[in-house]
């Protein structure tokens, strides 16, 4: 248990550093901001209780908010991702169920499964994030375009990070 907490804190710190120092400085044409820190929410162990996932995701977002001057935006979006996660895990569970005590990663469940999983959660997260940011439905389509483009980029970065983790593990 303690080991696990240390491990996840480590993952969180690394993802945060990547997010703050690298990805927050990326901006293509005003539409695209990739967010890699969602990987932390994706990777929480499968059997983690729902309410723990929710609270952990909320604070994961809130800490990023402090560094980006956006109180509440990432916290709200991450809580949404944490909320939807159990439903998605249930909807796309592998045929013989999840391995006990495992994290839902690409290394264990393969590329195609992970692509669907991350795409679903990242989309929910980005929908919440970008609409919370403008906080109105004015310019609905333009915000929607930002959601789609950013989702593609975020998922790409998340999958790259997972590949990297797999390579390092070998």
């Amino acid at each position: 248990m303690i080991n696990r907490i240390i491990r996840y804190t480590g993952i969180y710190v690394i993802l945060m550093l990547l997010q703050i120092f690298v990805l927050n400085n990326i901006q293509f044409s005003g539409y695209v901001n990739p967010y890699i820190y969602i990987l932390f929410i994706l990777l929480l162990p499968v059997e983690t209780a729902g309410w723990i996932v929710l609270i952990v995701s909320f604070f994961a977002g809130l800490i990023l908010d402090l560094f980006t001057n956006t109180p509440g935006m990432h916290a709200g979006a991450s809580a949404g991702a944490g909320f939807i996660r159990p439903y998605i895990l249930r909807a796309i569970s592998p045929r013989d169920g999840y391995k006990p005590d495992s994290e839902p990663s690409m290394i264990i469940y393969g590329f195609r499964w992970f692509l669907v999983y991350s795409l679903a959660i990242v989309t929910v997260h980005h929908l919440l994030l970008f609409y919370l940011e403008v906080f109105s439905l004015a310019g609905f389509l333009r915000t929607f375009l930002r959601v789609i483009l950013s989702t593609v980029f975020s998922v790409t970065f998340i999958i790259l990070a997972e590949y990297f983790r797999g390579v390092v593990r070998k």
Binding site: W51, L54, I55, F58, G61, D65, P71, G72, M73, A75, G76, A79, G80, F83, L132, F135
Partner: peptide
């Protein structure tokens, strides 16, 4: 819990 947390987040954003 989710509604509660979203409430906190939105109040932060509004403020």
């Amino acid at each position: 819990l989710f509604i509660l947390l979203e409430g906190v987040a939105i109040s932060l954003i509004v403020n």
